[in-house]
Simulated scan of single mutants.
Amino acid sequence: MAELVTGEAVALDIRVARLASRGCAVLLDLLFQLVIMNILIVGVSMATAGADDAWTTGLSLACVVAVIVGYPCAFETLSRGRTLGKLAAGLRVVADDGGPIRFRQALVRALAGFIEFWTLYSAPALIASLCSKRGKRLGDLFAGTIVIQERVPSSVFGPVAVMPPQLAGWARTLELSMLSDELAMTARQYLSRFWELRPDVRDSLGQRIADQVAVVVSPPPPGRVRPEILLSAILAERRRREEWRLAQRRAARLRRLGQSEQPPGAAPAPVPAMAMAGGPPVAPVPQGPPMPPPFSAPGPGQPRFLPPPNYGAGPYQGVLPQGPPPGPPQGQYPTGQYPTGQYPVPPQRP
C-alpha cells in the first residue's frame, strides 16, 4: 500500500503494482508486439514482392517503429493506461496525482521502453524498479506516472475493524479529533495483517501502536484491554462517525438541489433518515455476560493494557480483528472466545 495525493490535496490509498506482476505484463506485451510485428513484416514483404528493396526496407522499418512505440502509446492513451498485458495482469498506469494518463506521458513511456526493453534487455527497468519505493521504471520517472494494481481482493479495502460489544458504550464517548490519519492508517494496516505476523511480533507491535493511540484519545478504556481489541473499537467508531458526516453532507447537497429545482410552493426534497438525526446513529449494544477478568479495572501501578498473553492461560473474551483464519473453527467467532492454548496458525497467503 502507498499513499497518493491527488490534485485536490486528497490522500488516497493505492496498491502499487509489484515487480512480479509488472514483469508478467511486460512479457505478455512483448509477445503480442512480436506477433503483430511478424504479421506486418510478412504482409509488407508479400505486398512489395516486385518493388525496390529500399522501399521494402523502409516500410518494414516503419512497421517495426509503429509496433514498438505505437502499440503501448496507443493502448495506454485510448484505454486509460492499460495495454493488453496490463489488462490481463490487472494493472493500470496513472499519473502521479491519480489522474488518467495523457498522450504525452504515454509517448514518453513508449520511447523510454524502447531503450529499456528492446535495446538493453530490461536491465535499466529492473534496476530502477528495485531502487524506487513505488517500483517506477525509467519511463515512469520521466513521464511522471505510476503503475497500480487495479484488481485486488475485496478484503484489502473492506472493513477490518469491528466494534467489540464490550467497548461499544465507551467508544461512543471518545474524543477522536487528535487521532491523525497517518496513525489511524497504521492501526488499520496492523489489523489487516494481524494473522500474517508472528505472535511475538504482533503483540509487541500492537502494544506500541495502542500506546500511541491511547495518548491522543480520551477517555481511557474501562480496563486492561488487548491492543487489537482496543484498536478495532477505536477504528470502528471513527468509521461510523465519518459515515455519519458523509450522510450529512449528502443530505445538505440533496436539500440544496431540491430547493433549486422544485417550483415555488412544492414540498421539500426528502432527506435521508440517517442525516435527520441530531447525531451519529447509535446501534443498541447487545447485553452479554459480565466482562471477564482481562477487562477489569487496573489497580495502582498496573499497565493500562494487558501484557503479551500467556497462550496457555485459558480463553479470552473478545472480537477478532478480521475474523477467524481459514480452517476448522477452534472456538466461537467472532463474539465468542479466543481458543484455549496456542493462537490459531496464521493463514498461508501467497
Rank of each mutant, 00 (worst) to 15 (best):
L197Y: 06
R198F: 00
R198Y: 03
D200H: 06
D200E: 12
V201Q: 01
R202P: 08
D203A: 04
S204K: 02
S204C: 00
S204R: 01
L205K: 03
G206N: 04
R208T: 09
R208F: 01
R208K: 04
I209Y: 05
I209N: 07
A210D: 15
Q212A: 13
V213I: 08
V215D: 14
V215Y: 05
V215M: 11
V217F: 15
P219G: 14
P221G: 14
P221W: 10
P221V: 13
P222M: 15
G223H: 13
R224Y: 11
V225M: 15
P227Q: 10
P227G: 11
E228G: 13
E228T: 10
L230K: 11
L231Y: 14
L231F: 14
S232K: 06
A233G: 09
L235G: 07
L235P: 07
L235Q: 07
A236W: 05
A236T: 06
A236Q: 08
R238E: 12
R238L: 11
R240A: 14
R240L: 10
R240G: 10
E242P: 06
E242D: 13
W244E: 11
W244P: 10
R245M: 15
L246A: 15
L246Q: 14
A247M: 07
R249E: 11
R250H: 08
R250N: 11
R250K: 12
A251R: 01
A251N: 01
A252M: 06
A252F: 05
R253N: 06
R253K: 05
G258M: 09
Q262M: 10
P263K: 09
P263S: 12
P264V: 08
G265P: 02
A266N: 02
A266V: 02
P270C: 01
P270H: 00
V271G: 00
A273Y: 00
A273W: 00
A273K: 02
M276A: 02
M276V: 00
A277R: 05
